[in-house]
Amino acid sequence: MIVKSGKMLCLAVVALAFAGPTEAEQPILQDALLDKLEGAWVITGTVAGEATTDDLDVEWVNQHQYLRLHEISRDRRPNGRPRYEATVYIGWNQPTAKYGIVWLDDFGGLSTQSIGLASKTGDQLPFVFTNPDGSFTRTTMTYNPATKGWTWTIDEDRAGTLSRFAALTLTRAEGAKR
């Protein structure tokens, strides 16, 4: 009976360990601007001078702490795989009072260059991704209240000069709510 009691005690300890508070450590991230990005979108525009059309699904995850964006290209490679795919997380960093973003795409190579920070300016989130050499890439997400859509621009710092890498427009996918 000691073995059974020991097993029961072990199960009780495990159950108590997982029976903590049901809420996240910090309050739910409430952000009116990020809420406007939630839903299904079609991305059109140019990346590196080439036309592109991608699908984007955006939803709150991890108890409403992060906004997850899943982008997938409609264009296919010869092997049938999408030309581009990315999963992106946007959250709020209370200690720095900045938005944080982690951009994970099929180019791989997770590094500090995959992480950006932004301070909200009106309806804009200008995320800056810093490279080890001090140069940077800035991805600016701008909400347009008139169209209820978004534009994204990606600018790269090359020897102190910004050059446009991408100019994209997001429109609600047909039949998408919001």
Rank of each mutant, 00 (worst) to 15 (best):
D57V: 14
T53W: 01
T44K: 04
W103E: 04
G122F: 06
L117Y: 05
L117Q: 04
R76M: 12
D54E: 06
W60R: 05
A40S: 14
L67V: 15
D57R: 01
L125Q: 04
F127Q: 06
L69P: 08
L69K: 13
Y99P: 03
H64M: 12
I101S: 09
V58M: 03
I72M: 09
L125N: 02
I101A: 13
H64P: 03
P95T: 13
E85M: 05
G100H: 02
T46Q: 14
T52R: 10
D123E: 11
V47H: 09
G100E: 06
D123S: 10
L125S: 03
G91Y: 07
K120G: 07
I72G: 00
L117F: 05
A51P: 02
Y99F: 15
L110P: 02
G49K: 11
G122W: 07
Y84H: 10
G45E: 09
D55C: 01
V61Q: 12
G116Y: 02
E71C: 07
G45Y: 06
E50D: 14
E85N: 02
V128L: 07
F129S: 06
W41V: 00
A48Q: 14
V42D: 09
G116W: 03
I115R: 00
T44S: 09
G49V: 13
L104S: 11
V102L: 14
T44E: 07
T44D: 05
Q113W: 06
V58C: 11
R77Q: 15
F127A: 09
W103T: 05
D123H: 08
L125D: 03
A48K: 12
G91K: 02
H70Y: 01
W60I: 11
I115F: 06
T53C: 06
E50L: 14
T44F: 01
V47K: 03
R74V: 06
V47T: 14
P126T: 07
F107W: 03
Q65A: 12
L125G: 02
T52I: 15
F129V: 12
E50Y: 13
Q63M: 10
L125T: 03
S119H: 02
